[in-house]
Design a protein around this nucleic acid. Structure first.
Lengths: 229, 229
DNA sequence: CGTGACCTTGACATTTCTCAATAATGGTGG
DNA sequence: CCACCATTATTGAGAAATGTCAAGGTCACG
């Protein structure tokens, strides 16, 4: 379904750490993540940065989804392929292709719902609950079952990225992760990879487990996932 | 521009405290706030509720903007008029009316941007900064200038609503508000009304002042505001 | 004029942050 | 392939912010 989009988009290949400008010559821009991972962050004056979204393959971002004036950045955290095009162009394509229009609308609604959940997570969960939540989320979105109860996934995000996503300090996050390891929930894993030893135990720690599963299930039907599979 | 929508929507009049179901017979629903104020909240199992959005006249909400499985509620906090219709119907109307389509798209992008800001506020600001932020926001969105530097606005939201919006507890919020009063930034005001004595002083307390002003300025151009004026 | 909801405030508990020291990791040039 | 360096991660101790609990006050409404 992305064939038409592919002809119109610039295909950007980014290395770890590269930052993309959010808008091109002041006009609204759309980004489609094809592979790798990026973070969208926002830094209010005088405060620590806040990661607003972790973007994985299939995610769509519009520059207007970010407060226009704010100091927002889109940064790749691994080798990444991103398609970029003017929003007006993508919208025109969607006008001719109901499947694409539906995909964009669903994707956007899902993103909004995800943001709402993110607010509840940051606003109301304890540190440990937040960490359990993001790990569960990543496991659902990009995990591979290793053995019964064990799931592994790539972890392109640094401690700082995850901490900033959760509204915690890196120090606090590190302590919490150590705690999860000593509880036997996480394995002592390599740098850019996480292994969850006890998926049920992890899920039991997060009040959002059910919501995440629901979002994940509805995502499985989305064209991008099928397209990528 | 809402003439056509008006013929299709059910016009709901709610009293303070009434809760609306978010979806009608399982299908996606759209709400347009015409007067009054509502809160959209979300409660993860075993945690305090989190208010995800404060809805004021002109705001548009779609039921899919909320995690489907989550325990979400839309509650009126004052006498309110809300238009409700199926999203499919509203979408069809937008298909025939580019102005409406544009309005919906802008409104949605603004809402997403607002959510992103909300995440940064909850994730990274101190209690006092959060309170200053929400007061500035309300002053910009619904305030009336009284004298130079003084702005008044209706405050339909309870302490609990605001606390839940900011991810604080009501006790802490109350302490912070008392502190702002003793600093001379807020006036000792009536129950459902707030008077800001020193708008500049208040704005100086929030790192998000500039972002809020930017959003507010772009909002002034939106049809609903003009329409309501 | 009594009742319940909402708000304020104090004392204390808990969580998270800050700062600093140390360790581990990954990339680079010799 | 190794030594070095910058970056990232871990951990401890103490500080600061926020939460919890409890008591009392205020307000609106019947």
């Amino acid at each position: 379904m992305f064939a038409e989009v592919a002809t119109q988009a610039s295909k950007l290949r980014l290395r770890r750490g590269q930052t993309l400008p959010l808008s091109l010559d002041g006009r609204e821009t759309a980004f489609i993540v094809r592979s790798g991972a990026l973070v969208l962050d926002l830094t209010l004056p005088g405060t620590a940065r806040q990661v607003v979204d972790l973007l994985l393959p299939g995610d769509v971002l519009r520059s207007n989804f970010v407060p226009s004036d704010a100091n927002a950045r889109l940064t790749s955290v691994s080798a990444t392929e991103v398609w970029r095009l003017r929003w007006s162009v993508l919208k025109a394509l969607a006008g001719d292709d109901p499947a694409l229009a539906g995909f964009l609308e669903t994707s956007m609604a899902a993103q909004m719902a995800r943001q709402a959940l993110h607010i509840a997570i940051i606003g109301r969960l304890t540190g440990e609950q937040r960490v359990a939540t993001v790990l569960t989320d990543l496991a659902l979105r990009s995990g591979i079952t290793l053995t019964a109860g064990e799931v592994g996934f790539n972890m392109p995000f640094s401690r700082r990225d995850i901490a900033d996503y959760l509204g915690l300090n890196p120090d606090t996050l590190s302590r919490i992760v150590s705690g999860l390891r000593s509880q036997g929930i996480l394995a002592r894993s390599e740098r850019r990879r996480t292994v969850v030893r006890d998926v049920r135990g992890l899920a039991a720690l997060t009040p959002a487990a059910q919501s995440l599963t629901a979002i994940s299930d509805s995502d499985r039907n989305k064209p991008a996932a099928i397209d990528a599979a």
